[in-house]
Amino acid sequence: MQKLIKNINYFIRKIKNNDQDVWDELEEQMILSDVNASCAQKIISDVQSEVYARKINEPEAVKTLLKQKIAALLGNHQRHRLNTSEKKPTVYLLVGVNGVGKTSTLAKLAHMLQKKEKRVLIAAADTYRAAAVEQLQAYAQRLGIDMVRHQRNSDPGAVVFDSIEKSMAKDIDFLLVDTAGRMQTSYNLMEELKKIKRVVLKKTNKVPDETLLVVDSTTGQNAIFQATTFHKALDLTGVVLTKTDGTSKGGIILSLQDELGLPVKMVTYGEKLEHIAYFDPVKYVDMLIN
């Protein structure tokens, strides 16, 4: 991230000298941050035409303009809050491909809600991966949160069914559902997720309040395919961007918002349970370009 910032500052100095290559290099830097190539081109040509039209040659003004463009694309603060429902329990469903950090995100989310003195229940609906339930159980124990689990390889829909019953009986505020990682190309497993969603609808008379796609910030352009397929199947409400403490810039979120209208709602950034935060587009852009 530091390197990118340095580079952008360098470019902005060059813009002052009206160097045409600057734009190409700026595009290169965005692409190296995993911003989609077409998306980068679009933003840059946008900024470019405005810079020329308004005869901007102050680096600070160019910088502000670029920030504004990206921030505008990512939307405002308000939209990125997590939905809650009047009727208990509020249900959050976490989905995503293998290895993006769904289970640890769920634990972090549980911890966050617990700190707000909410009653939380966890549904271990990843009945597939070896020891997935044990991993979640370890977190649940650490947090002192109840968890509903079934046998390995049992129907995840049934786990969700039971968890909702238990939530209602125990006056639970938030039910967090962990699902098995799956490649978006697996037709069967995508159908299974639809079923989980149907179970929620049937038992609570509403769809999950949040259906969040967990995306690893290290992921490249495939994130667009992931989001497109999961969104088509499940009507996602947003994205959780994980592992943002690494060197990857997660530039792919620009396309998730731009093409699919999916806002990043939360980010996670470390191994500790506290390492979760609401996503703030303005801060993100500040970090990207400053």
Binding site: I31, L32, D34, V97, D216, T219, G220, Q221, G246, S248
Partner: peptide, 12 residues
């Protein structure tokens, strides 16, 4: 290495 890794694959 995850085949879905983006530009950072090289640095990793």
């Amino acid at each position: 290495l995850d085949a879905m890794t983006g530009q950072e694959a090289v640095n990793i």
